[in-house]
């Protein structure tokens, strides 16, 4: 990890956004395209207003975020616990690692039919799907981190007569923390992608994914574009939060 910290937003990063919006507006107003396909920007802003005021845009957004964080918490904690087990126990690793390596090759979306059959298309199956997305990166990175605890520090623990629990809490876990956080960070990104995927493929209940599909079905591109922008913005924020948490927890690595 580099020591770069993004304390303040660099406004230059907004240049392509402004250019894109200007191009969008120009194309929309030029009359070259159907405004139903490329809706004008002020329409989008107006839509945002009505969606917030009249329909349940915020409700949809909240539903997606709660779904995302529930699945993420479930999957990531299982991943950390499983990863520590596989990292520390040669027996557990010998028994489970080959199966896991096949399991992780199964594309995430291939699970949807099975999950839908087992858990229905309600909230439970969406959370299971998100948890699945968070589980794999967390587990892989936790295993790696736990194994990377240096033998020389473990020897220091032995000299200080650390018991197994002390070894785990005072040496293996802190040594693995950078890797664990990398895994958790990846899991956070994957979970958000999976949340939208789950909503898209198991359309029931509120959510940003539902909003996008509605927009398509009613041929309201404005609504679809609005949903996409929200997805991007939420993902961006989650990534920021994860990075800030990482920097704070790993202060000992940089000055």
């Amino acid at each position: 990890m580099t020591a770069t910290r993004q304390r303040r937003l660099d406004w230059r990063g907004l240049v392509p956004v402004v250019v894109l919006l200007a191009a969008w507006e120009a194309i929309s107003r030029s009359g070259l395209t159907d405004t139903r396909i490329v809706p004008p920007l002020e329409g989008l802003v107006g839509l945002l207003g009505t969606e917030v005021a009249e329909k349940s845009l915020l409700g949809n957004l909240a539903a997606s975020i709660v779904r995302d964080l529930s699945g993420f918490a479930l999957g990531a904690s299982l991943g950390v616990v499983g990863g520590i087990l596989l990292g520390l126990s040669p027996l557990a690793s010998a028994l489970l690692r080959p199966s896991f390596d096949v399991f992780r090759q199964i594309a995430l979306f291939a699970w949807i039919p099975l999950i839908a059959m087992w858990f229905g298309i309600g909230e439970a199956s969406k959370i299971v799907f998100v948890a699945l997305a968070a589980f794999t990166p967390t587990l892989i990175n936790t295993v790696e981190g736990t194994r990377s605890a240096s033998a020389t520090l473990v020897e220091v623990g032995a000299l200080l007569r650390y018991r197994r629990s002390q070894m785990l809490l005072a040496i293996y876990l802190p040594a693995a923390l950078p890797s664990i956080l990398t895994g958790v960070h990846l899991a956070l990104i994957q979970s958000w992608l999976a949340t939208i995927g789950a909503e898209y493929f198991m359309t029931a209940g509120p959510g940003i994914g539902t909003l996008i599909i509605e927009g398509r079905d009613r041929f309201q591109m404005g609504q679809t574009v609005l949903g996409m922008i929200l997805i991007g913005a939420v993902g961006f924020l989650l990534n920021r939060i994860a990075r800030a948490a990482e920097n704070r927890l790993l202060r000992w690595r940089t000055a």
Binding site: L153, V156, L159, L160, Q166, A175, W252
Partner: peptide, 28 residues
Amino acid sequence: LQRGLVFQEPRLFPWLPVERNVLAALRN
């Protein structure tokens, strides 16, 4: 704990500040 050992490399816990590295020896 009646026999201390210092290695050629300091082998400190990189995630702990100085005082807590010394304190870590007193866990038991």
